[in-house]
Design a protein around this nucleic acid. Sequence first.
RNA 1: GGGUGUUUAGCUCAGUUGGUUCAGAGCGCUACUUUGACAGAGUAGAGGUCACUGGUUCGAGCCCAGUAAUACCCACCA
Length: 906
Amino acid sequence: MELASRYQPANSEDKWYAHWMEQGYFYSIPDDREPFSIVIPPPNVTGVLHMGHILNNTIQDVLIRKARMEGKNACWVPGTDHASIATEAKVVRWLREEKGLKKGDLTREEFMQYAWQWTDKYGGIILNQLRKLGASCDWKRTAFTMDEPRSEAVFKVFIDLYRKGKLYRDYRMVNWDPEAKTVLSNEEVIFQEENATLYFVNYPVIDLPGQFLTIATQRPETIMGDTAVAVHPDDQRYNHLAGKKVMVPMINREVSIIFDEYVDPAFGTGALKVTPAHDSNDYELGKKHGLEIIDTLNDDGTLNAAAQLFVGKDRFEARKLVVEKLKELNLLQKTEEYKSNIGRSERTQAVVEPKLSLQWYVDMKKLAPPALNAVMKDDIVFIPEKYKNVYKHWMENIRDWCISRQLWWGHRIPAWYLVGGRYEVSGERVEVSGNRDKVSGNNFQDKGGPPFVAETVEEALELAKSKTGNQSLSITDLKQDEDVLDTWFSSWLWPITVFNGFRDQKELNYYYPTSVLVTGWDIIFLWVARMIMSGYEWQDTLPFKTVYFTGMVKDKLRRKMSKSLGNSPDCLKLIADFGADAVRYGILASSPAGGDLLFDEKLCENGRNFCNKIWNATRLVKGWQTEASQPLQPLQQFAIHSFSHKWNKCKTTIHQDINQFRLSDAITTLYSFVWDDFCSWYLEMVKPEASGPMAPQLKEQSIAFFEEMLSALHPFMPFITEELWHQLTERKLNDDCIKSPYPGPVPYDEGKIKATLALQDIIRSIREIRNKNGISLKEALELKIYESDESKTLFYLQEHRDFVVKFGNLVSIEWVTSEVTQAASFISGTTKYFLVLNKKIDAVAEKVRLEMELAHAKKFIQSIQVKLENEKFIQNAKPDVIENEKKKLADGLERLKNLEESLIGL
RNA sequence: GGGUGUUUAGCUCAGUUGGUUCAGAGCGCUACUUUGACAGAGUAGAGGUCACUGGUUCGAGCCCAGUAAUACCCACCA
C-alpha cells in the first residue's frame, strides 16, 4: 500500500498503546531477571498534565523502556497523591459552587463522602493523560496515597515513630494559613520580597506627658496584642526610659519597656513593639521577659474579641482601620515604603500568619544521620551533583517536621484523647477541657491530655485504661484527634508502600531499592530527603540508587510557567498537534539534568519534522525493488561497510550517554545520526538510479540497519518507531519494536570513520565551488588531483572513486603532477584538487581567498613550531601528543606549499 | 546575612581526564535548488578576544584566586 508523504501521529498512537497493553508488555511480577524499578513522583490526584509532568515522565519512560528492551524486569509504578490542602480546597469550592454547601455546615463524615465522590469523578485524569504521552507504566499497580494499603502503612509508621520516641506533640509558633485554616510546615511556605509599608507609631510614655516612644511596625493591626515595647540596652536614645511604661495606642494598655540585645538599633527607630502571639521573635522575647501572650486573631485571620477593636474584621481590613484610627489620634508619625520578605502558603497563596499552636512533630534529628551519610558518600547518586550541597546544608540544619494539618481530607491522626474531666495519667493530674489552643496569660490551660496512639480506638482504650488505671473507661470517653497528616507523611513512604511494604516483604525484596528516582529539584526537601530518611528508618537501606533532578520548565522568556501568566502550553493540544513523539523529543532535546529549561514549541516542531524524515526514509526503503540477478555494486558495498562503523560508534556513544543520564545528548546524537549519516549519506549512496532494481541483500541489510535505529530510538519516540517497525517489513505476532533488543556498545574502527569523513570533505568542497560559481549539479565536471609525491598516492581515494564521482557529479578523476591552470582549486587534508570549469575563474577573488588561507596556514605553522622548539614541551608532554604536533606541522607545511604554488600559478 | 549555580555564535545550549585542526551543535539568518522518500526538504555559507583581571603550567574554554553581571536556594529581622 502506498504511504502518504507525511507522518500522521494520530493514526499510530492509540493503536499501538492499546496493542502494547493487550500484549501485557508493561506488566511486571518478580521473577529471576534483574529488576529495574521506578516509582512515579505521584502527581496530585486533582492534577492535569503540565510541562513538568511531560518532562519527568518522558525521562522515566525512556529509562524504563530501555531497561525493558535490555531484558530487565522493568517495573514502573504509577499512582497519585491525595494532596491534602490542594484537594480539600478544590472540593470546598466545588461544594460551594455546584452544591451550594459550606464546609462548616457539613459533618466530617459528610464532607469525606463528598470528597471521595469528587475524587472518583475528577481524580486520576492525569493518569490517562500520561498514557497519551506513551508512559509505559504497570497500570495494574496503580497506587493512591489514600487507598487502603497505603493508609495502613501511614498509621503503622505513625505509631511506630511515636513508640520509638521520634514523634511528639508541642506548642510552638507555627506557620498558619488563614485561608485553608491549617498549619503548614516550613517547606510549604514560600518567602518572596514584596512591597510593604513601615508605619511609625507613637506610644505615649506614661508619667512623661507629651513624650512618645516611636516604634516602627509593618503590622499595625497587631498593636492590640502588644504586651511590651523593646529597645536595645545600649541605645543612648532610650536610656532615660528605664523603668518607664508606655501606653499601647487605641486600647490604652500599659506595657513595660524592655531592654534586649535582640533589637537592632539601626532599624526603624530602634524601638520595637512586642506582640508575642503574632511573631516568632516576639514570642521568644516574651518567653524571656515573661510577657503576657494576647492572641488577637481567629483562625481565619479575622480579629477576635481580645483585640477589643475592629472585632470580626479581616486582618488586612483591620490594618487600614487601625491606620485611620491612629491618624485620628495623631499617633501615626509617618510611613515608609520598603521591601520585605513575605511568606505565603504554597497552596493557597495566603499570607502566612505566625501563630501559637499545639501540633505533632517528627524529631528529624533522629532520622537524618544515615540519610545524610548515604548521599555524601554516594551510595545514592545525585544528578547533577550540585544538589548534594543543597541537601547537606538542609540535613545538617534540619528542623522538626510539623506533620499535623487542620483539614479533613487526609489520614486522620491515629491518636485518641480523653474527653473533658479530670484524670490522673501516669501519676500526673491533668484537666481536659477539649479546647486545646486556648491560651490565657502566659499559661497554656490544657493540652487536651496525653494522646493514646494506636491503630484502633479499641487499642487506644486499652492504653488509656492501663495508663489511668481506670478500668471503667469506655470508648465514649475517648475522642480521636481531629487533625489529618501532612500529605508528605504518606508520600515519603511511597517507594516502600507501592510494593506493599509494611504488609509483606515479597515484592519489596525484589523491587526495592528502586533503580532511579526522577523528579524536580524543587521538592528535594519536601519529598526526596524525607524518602531517603524513611528508607533508612524502616528498610534500613536506601530507597533508590540514583536521583535524577530535572530542571524547572520555563517559557522562552525565562518566566515560570503559571496559570496567571497563561504561558503554559496546553499539553494535550501539543500532543494532538505535533504527536506524542514530537513532544517527547522537544522536551528531551533541550533538557540537561538540573538546569532550568526554556520550552519553545519550536522544539516540538523539530521533533515532528524528524518523525517525518524517518517516515519518508521508510517510504524509500520500502519501495525498493529487488532482483536476485542484481550484483552488489562496489559503492554500495562501501556504503554498508563505512556506515556500519559509524553506526557502531553511535551505538556506543548513546549507550554511554544514557547510562550517564545524558538523555538530551543521546537523543541529539541519534537525531543527527539518522538524519545526516543514514538519510543524507547512506541512503543517497545505495539508492538505485531511476528506481531500478537492486540486489536483495542490499535491501535486507538496509532494513537491518533501519531496524536497529528504530530500536535505538524507541525509548525516546515509542509510537513512530513501533509504527515503522511494522511498516518496514512483515512481522509475526509479538515481533514488536518495544521488545526488540536494545542496541548496545560495539567495537568500531575510528580510522575507517575518519577516512569516510575525508571523502565527504572533498565532496563538500566540490559542492561549494559549484555553489559559488553557479554551476548546477546537472553539469558534470572533471576533477584533477595534484600529487607530486608518488609514494603518497591516495590509494583510498582511488579505491573509492565511485563515491567521489557520484557525489561530486564528475565525468572523470585524473591524477596530475603539476598545477592546473584555468581551474578552481581547493585543498582537502593536505592534497590539492582542481575542478575544471567551463568558465573563467575570477582571478582577483581567488587571489584574495588564497592569501587569506595562506596567512592562516602560516600562523598555524608558527604556533606549532614554537611549541616544538620549546624544550619543556618536549620534556613534559606525552609522546603521542608530541607525535601529533609533528604530524600537524608536516600537514601544515604541505598545505602551505600547495597554497604558495597556487598563488604563483595565478 | 549565609550558600550554590551560571556567563562560549543573533537565540538556546554542548564542550567529559588541561593536549587530535578545539573553538562546536540545533534554531535563526544568507544564497542557490519547484532533483522522483521527504519544501515539515536538499546543498553550501556567514557568525565567537570562550564575561573581566591575574595566577599555575611547556600548554588553559577547561585548574586556582579575585572582580563584575545574573539566577536560584536557605535564614526569625520589626
